[in-house]
């Protein structure tokens, strides 16, 4: 464990707390993509299936349970919560996710760390899917132009978590002799790159104070 990874995990937890606060606390799903929420639920339910046999680290075990629980809670409220459904904009949240899920599934089968292990295929699928899972959310924000304050902090924290993981992989590459995780590096690079445009506008808008809403052209 190193500081980058720890901060990355904390940023990830923060993104969940912000989203739960908005959807469950604020009873509003305005500007939030259900498609992204559902893809993240798939990402965690597939990647953390090793909860059933991998007890190597209590820290990981607890956070895996937390991430699966939080992502399923978000999907549940967005699908069945009366006020959440009323504020969710289904026709704007229209990114064709089948064009994301299918290629990731093919890549997961073809490019993974152990072609004899179904779990490695599922694990690789989950890594690839996470890299693109934010697209429907960014697509929705782009369409709406204006990003509500809490939503902008949620997306920022979610983007920051994987950016911190990139630093964590660089750190581990330099400090651990034969550490190499090409699959997560490349996926994490793609994932973080997708946020660059948002990060730029987030920084521009927050320069003048944390409560300004983010404007996307």
């Amino acid at each position: 464990m190193n500081i980058f990874r720890f901060l990355g995990d904390m940023s990830h937890i923060l993104s969940f707390l912000l989203l739960l606060h908005k959807i469950v606390g604020g009873k509003s799903a305005a500007g939030i993509s259900l498609r992204t929420a559902e893809m993240y639920a798939i990402v965690f339910c597939t990647r953390y299936i090793d909860l059933l046999w991998n007890f190597a680290s209590l820290y990981n075990y607890l956070l895996k349970l937390l991430f699966i629980g939080a992502s399923l809670t978000i999907v549940y409220f967005m699908r069945y919560g009366p006020s959440q459904k009323a504020t969710y904009n289904a026709d704007e949240d229209a990114f064709p996710v089948q064009y994301l899920i299918a290629p990731c599934a093919v890549l997961g089968v073809l490019i993974n760390q152990d072609h004899s292990s179904p779990f490695e295929m599922v694990w690789a699928f989950s890594i690839y899917l996470e890299a693109v899972a934010i697209l429907p959310q960014l697509f929705l924000l782009q369409k709406q132009g204006e990003v509500e304050n809490l939503t902008s902090h949620y997306v920022f924290a979610l983007g920051a978590y994987r950016a911190l993981y990139l630093l964590n992989w660089m750190f581990r590459f330099m400090t651990e002799p034969d550490y190499q995780q090409r699959i997560v590096w490349l996926s994490g690079l793609v994932q973080t790159a997708l946020y660059c445009d948002f990060f730029y506008h987030y920084y521009q808008s927050k320069k003048g104070g944390l409560n300004k809403s983010v404007k996307l052209p």
């Binding site: 990830h12 990981n60 895996k64 760390q113 292990s117 490695e120 694990w123 190499q180 995780q181």
Partner: peptide, 10 residues
Amino acid sequence: AAEAEEHDEL
């Protein structure tokens, strides 16, 4: 192929 690194990260 690289031996399957055990997945010690989230």
